[in-house]
């Protein structure tokens, strides 16, 4: 599965458009990570626990989108976008969407 965030797949011709595909996941952080982050907050810098959490969430949303595209018979997703929104405090929704296409 080829994925790009531009309208085309460079060097390939798009044969067919299948429409929008999307994947999303809503994740909450857990207390242990909160405590570690609270300590790290004193001195600043990267909060690795949160980075990993959001990375996993994005991987999940992305693979759900790719699964949907595969079911449609597509072999590429173009114009992929990411969006994040907070649902309640401590939880956020990660959304990934794009257009499923068939390329040569």
């Amino acid at each position: 599965m080829i994925t790009t965030n531009i309208e085309t797949v460079p060097g390939r011709t798009i044969l067919e458009h299948y429409g929008i595909v999307q994947g999303s996941t809503i994740r909450a952080k857990h207390v242990g990570r909160d405590i570690a982050a609270g300590l790290k907050n004193l001195v600043g810098g990267e909060l690795r626990g949160y980075t990993e959490l959001l990375q996993e969430a994005r991987d999940e949303a992305f693979s759900r989108m790719v699964d949907q595209a595969q079911e449609m018979g597509a072999n590429a997703v173009v114009n992929v976008r990411f969006a994040t929104s907070s649902v309640t405090s401590g939880a956020s929704e990660i959304l990934c969407y794009g257009t499923a296409v068939l390329v040569e």
Binding site: T3, N41, G45, E46, L47, L54, Q55
Partner: peptide, 27 residues
Amino acid sequence: ERQLWNPDLPIAESRLVRGQVVVSVDY
């Protein structure tokens, strides 16, 4: 930009790349 500067060259591979980080300021 969304277009290649030399679009006529044959392309081997193209894919989505992504990087992310959570950072915080100090007290």
